[in-house]
Design a protein around this nucleic acid. Structure first.
Lengths: 225, 225
DNA sequence: CTAATAGTGTCTCTTAGACACTATAAA
DNA sequence: TTTATAGTGTCTAAGAGACACTATTAG
């Protein structure tokens, strides 16, 4: 039973998304270890789980974002786990994939080892990273249509028109201003700062994210009602 | 960098669900290894990934279901990965969790090492399995409200009323027959066998699942439209 | 004043729930 | 004919899109 097979590799990869002048961009990191596959290639930022340092895989993801992109505390959510014998030449591996969203004004600048790439222009990435990226985009677009997820791509405060633009850029199509306002009101995640901001016409109300409603997590039972 | 830390454990746990006379039940396996934690306790069926045998983690899940429940090819989908230093006393571990659905007429009978437990009656499970079970139920209920997922809990053929009952049991509430028929028609996943079946009144049309539309998987680009 | 952008009123079309009504079998 | 279950027609209320109209600033 307990043969001397090498243990499977366990890593974390992160799809880091932001909006760079109106287009969704993904953060890519250049692989710096000559001993590893795809040396010098641009891939999703990732790294091996370090049991001694990381409390859990989400910790690994945060460490990776800190080390490769200098990011402190972006919105972060688990996506799915990609595994198998074939996806990495070093052997059987599993990558717990996360996606993260950051507003443009917090997004780190490019360096020799980090850059932003327009997702529309990304043709293929090493490993199965294209597939991971595709899954992340699908998830983000799907959650965008019924949630406040894209708020995390917007700056700290914004006008309704700016936020609508963010949604439009994620979804790739125009949204009706009336319907958008209604939907945001229902979600009940915004609050007006009271400030006004003008962009050449009538000044718009400025909003920010409401503080999280932590009490919403009830559900102590496994069965409904 | 490459210290002699023990590698993290990589395992798969499966939330196996079926309907036993009108109630959602989860399949539990008794832990048989005296050297492992929770010996003799009932837990979600699971097992270590075996790189030599398993092509990927889904393979592991299928092997676990085959070995612990004698199941051939149930509906199987990845749920999420649960990881951390604290969840297993043997050390840092990651469990890639799946959920599986089987119709009652295919569900294996109980043995000394396998049994069905009404999810409404499950109070707590070893490890973080309660949390995994809760996440699976949440996912299944949520997908039920907009998809054909519960079809996989129904027998090979069924009347509309029977299928509606399955949905009601998963969701825990009554559904309007008219609306249910409309929704099923829109989903376009059923076909009438032509057969009729009586349960004391007017005989009902018998349906079965349409063969999967494999061509539906298009989306070659990362961007919409 | 005009131009530009913000924000609202409201009409309509679609969808979803409710529920009564018809249909078809067994006893 | 009665009873039981299947299945349909259709009314209505709520939701979502469309779009015109009002509001408020700059220049």
């Amino acid at each position: 039973m307990n043969t001397n097979q090498p243990a499977p590799l366990l890593m974390v990869d992160v799809v880091l998304l932001t909006l760079v002048d109106g287009h969704l961009h993904a953060g890519l990191a250049r692989r710096q270890n000559p001993a590893e596959p795809f040396f010098n290639a641009w891939t999703l930022p990732g790294g091996m789980v370090r049991p001694a340092e990381d409390q859990d895989a989400e910790d690994t993801a945060r460490r990776v974002l800190r080390d490769k992109a200098g990011l402190a505390s972006p919105y972060l959510e688990q996506l799915a786990t990609f595994s198998g014998a074939a996806r990495d030449s070093r052997g059987w591996s599993a990558s717990i994939a996360y996606y993260a969203l950051v507003p443009a004004d917090v997004a780190p600048a490019g360096t020799e080892f980090f850059r932003w790439a327009d997702v529309a222009g990304i043709r293929s990435l090493p490993f199965d990273h294209t597939q991971i990226l595709r899954a992340a985009l699908e998830r983000v677009r799907s959650k965008t249509s019924y949630s406040a997820l894209p708020l995390h791509l917007a700056p700290a405060d914004f006008t309704m028109a700016q936020l609508r633009t963010v949604y439009e850029q994620v979804l790739g199509g125009a949204l009706d201003p009336r319907g958008f306002e209604r939907r945001m009101a229902e979600l009940d995640v915004l609050e007006a700062t009271g400030e006004l901001r003008s962009a050449g016409g009538k000044p718009a109300r400025v909003y920010r994210r409401k503080p999280e409603r932590t009490g919403a997590q009830l559900a102590p039972s496994l069965v409904p009602r």
